[in-house]
Design a protein around this nucleic acid. Structure first.
Lengths: 404, 404
DNA sequence: CTTAGTAAGTTCAGCGAACGAACTATATCC
DNA sequence: GGATATAGTTCGTTCGCTGAACTTACTAAG
């Protein structure tokens, strides 16, 4: 919604269509009259807008709604074939895709393992191939959303340290292969969006994804906060007071990440274990494993408190390891937050594991597509895939001369 | 602009009036034709909207514009009497007020000293009294903006540690006295808004105010980011790794604030000096003073780098001590940022002292009023001052059981 | 001095979108 | 079967923007 463009009558219509569609998604199948009450338009306006959308094939008429007295209404719902979106997470070690529609119905979910450092182009071709195998015709899709573990600026990927990608144009690549409009987003941002898009609308919402590193996504009033270049939320790289290298000092990741946890465990127990190994040992009451988890909870608690003074969120959602180990983290985490909160309201800030587990980034990527479609009032406005593969993004990669 | 309300034709009109007024403010006096080109409306539309605003007294016709060929245009400008806003900063030790109009003309600027810990009600009455002395009739004001050094939620002040206020309703108090609509904002947020409202529109923009403590304000696309309760940006309270008390640990303020600087200076030199004293000694090449400033620049540089990974701003503006000592800080600060930046773009992030110096928060408070007026398309929509002084804000004060 | 050229600003018929009152349709309750 | 209630449609009205034609006011060239 361009804040700096003059409005015309079409803008009114688009906005009102958007409101109707959003209400329909929030509340599930509803009658015209119910929609009219929900969005504050008159019955006649809703009727005519709905009529249009039925003719476009965007909506379907469903069952009769029988609430008791009076004439029963006809329920409206999204046409599944016309509101499909595909979300894909290009993780470091695997690819996860999910196909769903605006009725919040998941039509399919697939994933496969990838070998590390596979070039992005290969990953994208494989994705396109798999999509073709699973879908009869990808052109039915409203779009594809890609969640990637790195800094995203606009449609371009600037830097993804995990898989080792720099200055790539995944959207252009995929559009060229599938002829489907594609959005790209940082994985934490995407997951954060997904959480608000399908969950309660808690704003602002911070999503914390702890894997080998640590990143956050921020969603304010349904909009992803990206910063100027898309580099916001890289809080794992916040420099703390602990001097480590001569020039900089340690960062938050050094204390809060799977790497840090594994390191702690090894230092204490003398045993070498991965994250899952530690969890297993914790099941068997290994005191070192329990200690490592306790320590993780403490560090995570401090971090949440810091998120509170920074973003003052309405809720914090944990993804990655934070969600996997939730069982052990919950109690000590809660206690740490209570002890350290700056204002009392933050002491009881809702913290919960992601509703979608490992699917969260892929779901969020799909949400990106659906959100955009809704914002346009349910119109697919896609410029045909112009080949711009020749030009490169102008933003450089991070300097690697520092930090470890 | 309510994102979730249906639009009607009045909304179009309001938006278009807003665009015209904003263009007029940005570009200074302009003709109808120029405005039409600037906002993308037709001449006829602009003409009729302008006609209305002339009749309302909001705009005045000015001189003829003589650009060369063709009929000269009539310049339009804001009526100074109808676009006055008052900004006030209720600082810990003084009150600063500024009166200005939408032509960006400052009509007056006053300040007076306050004794610390004066109850807020007294501060407000004194402010009202001074306004009455200086202004013939306060009802001509579009509104009053109040900048306060604390956490603000909506119209209410939750907690201001400096002057020691808790759970106050400054807006209600002032409205009862002056019968003028009043907005309240955190001082750093206000200053940040002022910086973007009158400066180049760099978004996101972070304002860093370093006084005895440390706070930040964030403005994104012209809108202040407040978080859920208005407690965002309290980055001075970010917990760092340095353990200090048993429960929490030190925070950023412990390393970066005037308190920290004074402490450092004393530890090194053995002399007790305030901030201004240290600056004076630096003038005389006192090595300890220079060292303290160098150290401040280093800590500030680290902080700016952290702001970059957190908010990825387009620019950082310094207020308070950061601005006063700019002369000594600039070079080492720049160098620190260059050394520590996470991505190369952040190495050269624009950092500059506030354009308004000590006036920044008061200017920002006034900007708050003007921005709101513009957002409404230049209509004063004020509900008469209903007395709600009986009810109290529901948010508690920070817990003081921790942190030193 | 006259005339052509150019740009500013006005007027007005037309259009698109929402509204609201009056209407029809279809159910329940007594 | 009639009263009542709610869903959905129809259509004339209102409102704001548009675009074309027009008027106004100036400069430049002959």
């Amino acid at each position: 919604m361009a804040r700096n463009a003059p409005l015309d009558q079409q803008a009114i219509k688009r906005q009102n269509r958007r409101l109707i569609l959003e209400a329909l998604r929030r509340n599930g199948p509803s009658s015209r009259a119910t929609l009219a009450r929900a969005v504050g338009l008159t019955k006649s306006t809703v009727s005519s807008l709905v009529q249009e959308m039925l003719e476009e094939g965007l909506l379907d008429e469903g069952n009769q709604h029988k609430p008791g007295l009076g004439r029963p209404g006809t329920e409206l719902e999204f046409s599944p074939e016309h509101t499909l979106a595909l979300g894909a997470e290009l993780g470091v070690e695997n690819t996860q895709i999910v196909l769903l529609d605006l009725n919040n119905k998941i039509h399919g979910e697939w994933d496969w393992v990838e070998s590390p450092y596979t070039p992005l182009a290969e990953r994208i071709s494989k994705l396109a191939e798999q999509v073709r195998i699973r879908l009869v015709d990808p052109t039915h899709l409203l779009g594809v959303g890609l969640a990637v573990p790195g800094v995203v600026s606009g449609r371009n990927l600037i830097y993804a340290p995990g898989p080792g990608w720099r200055n790539e144009r995944p959207a252009d690549l995929l559009e060229a292969l599938l002829k489907v409009p594609t959005n790209v987003e940082n994985d934490a941002n995407a997951a954060a969006l997904g959480e608000t898009f399908w969950g309660e609308n808690q704003s602002p919402l911070v999503y914390v994804v702890m894997t080998t590193g640590l990143g956050t996504g921020l969603v304010v009033e349904g909009q992803v906060y990206r910063g100027r270049l898309g580099a916001a939320g890289e809080l794992g790289h916040w420099l703390t007071g602990q001097p480590k290298s001569r020039s900089g000092g340690g960062d938050v990741e050094d204390a809060l990440s799977l790497r840090a946890m594994v390191r702690h465990y090894q230092a204490a127990s003398g045993r070498q274990e991965g994250f899952w190994g530690i969890l297993q040992r914790a099941e068997q009451q290994d005191p070192y494993a329990l200690q490592a988890l306790q320590n993780l909870a403490y560090e995570l608690g401090r971090f949440v408190v810091n998120l509170c003074v920074t973003f003052d969120p309405a809720a914090v959602v944990l993804g990655g390891a934070g969600a996997e180990a939730w069982k052990w983290l919950e109690a000590p985490l809660r206690q740490t937050i209570r002890n350290l909160a700056f204002i009392p309201e933050h002491a009881e800030i809702p913290v919960k594991p992601s509703a979608f587990g490992h699917l969260a980034p892929a779901m969020g990527a799909a949400a990106l597509v659906l959100q955009r479609f809704l914002a346009n009032g349910g119109t697919r406005e896609w410029s045909p895939p112009i080949s711009t593969l020749g030009t490169r993004p102008t933003i450089g990669a991070p300097s690697m001369t520092r930090r470890t």
